[in-house]
Design a protein around this nucleic acid. Sequence first.
DNA 1: ATACATTTAATTGTCTGACAATTGATAATT
DNA 2: AATTATCAATTGTCAGACAATTAAATGTAT
Lengths: 253, 253
Amino acid sequence: MKTELSPDHDLSAQIASAIRNAIIDGRLIVDERLPSESEMAETFGVSRPTVREALKRLAAQSLIRTQRGATGGAFVNRLQYDEAYGQQVTTATLLLSMNAIDFDTACEARYALERACAALSAQRRSPDHLAAMRAEIHRQSQPGLSDERFCESDVAFHRALVDGAGNPVLSWHLAGAIEGMQPLMNMITFSARDRARIIALHTALADALEARDGAAAETCLDDLCAETKQLARAVRAARDLRKSPAQGHGHGA
Amino acid sequence: MKTELSPDHDLSAQIASAIRNAIIDGRLIVDERLPSESEMAETFGVSRPTVREALKRLAAQSLIRTQRGATGGAFVNRLQYDEAYGQQVTTATLLLSMNAIDFDTACEARYALERACAALSAQRRSPDHLAAMRAEIHRQSQPGLSDERFCESDVAFHRALVDGAGNPVLSWHLAGAIEGMQPLMNMITFSARDRARIIALHTALADALEARDGAAAETCLDDLCAETKQLARAVRAARDLRKSPAQGHGHGA
DNA sequence: ATACATTTAATTGTCTGACAATTGATAATT
DNA sequence: AATTATCAATTGTCAGACAATTAAATGTAT
């Protein structure tokens, strides 16, 4: 059933890789049942725990699902958007938080991608998308909203914008770009004035989409990008100042 | 060290989830060593194989790495671009191939995102990026190149374009959009005339980037998108025709 | 004292065998 | 015929053992 294994890895990793390849290039099709763990153990010449470790690796990538019982087993899983969403967001989040990506780079990437959706969304957005955006704007205007909730609403707003393009593949890609930045955004403190500016831009954005004016929407996103970078810069300055409070008198020439 | 586990899942999934959350929200930091498998087994009140299954799940997501030996163990892994690339491409590939996404949707998403990189790449591309693109164009012009190799070169060309934007986050996002479509592209047969048109557009694209003309580059990408959709349509028509060769005389009403 | 070889201890990787839990199919009973 | 009980296959979990690996500790010779 499966082919040779390549060395240099744990057995469970090799087995997982062999099965993964079989799935990716179609030798195992969706909903097909894999042999039982015992059978695979015999096939690969390893013990059952080793096979199980391999299967858990695949399950972690949503490539298979398992079911107990008489007719149970491991089945090739149809990767669906909701599962892929989670993976995308997790990966993006970690990539941004672990690699000391500078905020401007992440921000530029995010808004560049979102701009790509704006024109399509202006063409195709439904009244529902607009309503969702307006609802989030309203939520953002509530006094006493915590910074975290404000960010959460911001994410929801932009998701509605992207979903308006009516392209699930695009929505999936943008999930990482937008939600993955949330931890970074949560480090920002939004003053009342900041919020007002952002809400104004969100309103302009919704208006542009309502008017099916893609170009105007793109302009709003550019402004929003600049605004966000500016806020982050302020946070950074405050932090650096706290770290070395008296560096203003010139220490390097 | 870790908190309570939530039910409704396998123990190994619960444990993996607990550790994953600890990593994501920073309670475990990069390069920190987890307790040994035996210790964790005791901590969580499960057996060592169960802990191992949990750790393999995390390893499959590149969240941890393990090392044998006296000072070995499981360490929180810094998610790096090359690892994240692979995951991104795998996920995108499966999402497109398993969900009967229609080609036009995938294509639209891909070129919309790539367009977002074009302007930046026109500003920032280095001579190296241009050289890489020209090299791929040359490769694509070789007679006797298989369709698969042609696609491969196409991917490399577009990657060079995207990398020209000098934003690694953007490059990561686009990896899925571009390479994930390769299996779909491989289903297309490229006639000599098709290749000539594509090569002409690639050349125009490289010229636009050389001239730092972002708008021209975007136009080329639009043309390329239309061209690709057109080719896919031809393949689809041929396949449908083969499936039901005489359906033209009306069987319904 | 330094360089090199040996031993040791800690840790992951793997195996064996067993039992529990789940679940669809089958047989028995009313 | 419908319901119930049993069965068999499969995954989930456990316990204990041994192999393989690796850095550190120890010993030895120059």
